[in-house]
Amino acid sequence: MTDAAPPVPARNDYLRAAVTTANPATLHGMLADAAVRFSSRAADLLADGPDRDEAGGYAALDRATALVAELFAGVKPNAAAATGEDADAGRAIAEGVRARFAFCLGRLAEAGRNNAAAPARDAARVLTVHAETWRELLLGSAGQGGAAAAPSPEPLTFAPAPAPPAAASAASRSWAA
């Protein structure tokens, strides 16, 4: 017997290289995709049925929660506001994105507290929309089929959705469906 560590699989080397060479926009997309994967996996494993695996579900919830927390921490409303004449729109968009991530964190926590698949599935749906939107933004900023680059520093032209009343339930929010 030797004390040497087992060889690292080639997949880990590939992933490490992809992460260390990616720009911040691409890293955000990778985190979003992974958060979708793990929250969906948690929902599948916590769902009632023959494939129910609470331990695996909780492990997936932990990973999804860590990923969403990282996404949440990466959204800086004040930095978004520093983009020029549309500062208020940039701040509002960033705050909306943070609110969606906060919703996802809450749903993942509820899935863990109640040992339930539905809240994790809610988080997965919101994260899926975010990941798809992010992918579209990256493709749009890459030009005519070129490699994805960091999004343009120009402010986005769409307006944020109006905030729901504070007393509204999560089910009534358009981003919770």
Rank of each mutant, 00 (worst) to 15 (best):
E132H: 10
T83F: 00
R41P: 00
V97M: 08
I93R: 11
L137W: 06
E54G: 10
L139E: 14
G84H: 02
A64V: 08
A120L: 03
L139I: 13
A102E: 15
A17F: 08
G96E: 02
Y58Q: 14
A5S: 14
P155F: 02
A32Y: 03
R11Y: 04
D122E: 08
A118L: 05
E85D: 11
A176M: 09
E85A: 13
M1G: 07
S141V: 09
L27Y: 01
H130V: 08
A99M: 11
N12C: 12
V19I: 15
P160W: 05
A120V: 07
A69G: 11
L46N: 02
L46M: 10
M1Q: 04
A99K: 08
A89T: 13
Y14W: 12
E154R: 03
R135W: 12
P9Q: 00
C104V: 05
P77C: 05
A99Q: 14
A80T: 02
M1W: 01
F72R: 07
A35C: 12
A116M: 08
R11T: 13
G56Q: 07
L108P: 12
D33F: 00
G106F: 12
G146M: 13
A150S: 00
A142D: 00
P24G: 04
G74N: 07
A142V: 01
A170Q: 15
R121V: 00
F103C: 11
A89D: 12
E70L: 05
G106E: 05
A149K: 08
A42I: 08
T133I: 01
T65W: 08
L108S: 10
F101W: 03
T2E: 05
R125H: 06
T20M: 13
P162G: 02
R100T: 04
G106V: 09
T157M: 01
A123R: 06
R52K: 11
A163L: 07
D44G: 15
P151R: 09
V129D: 12
F158C: 11
I93W: 03
S40I: 01
D122L: 06
D53L: 02
A170G: 11
L31Q: 07
A82G: 15
R173E: 14
A123Y: 07
M1S: 11
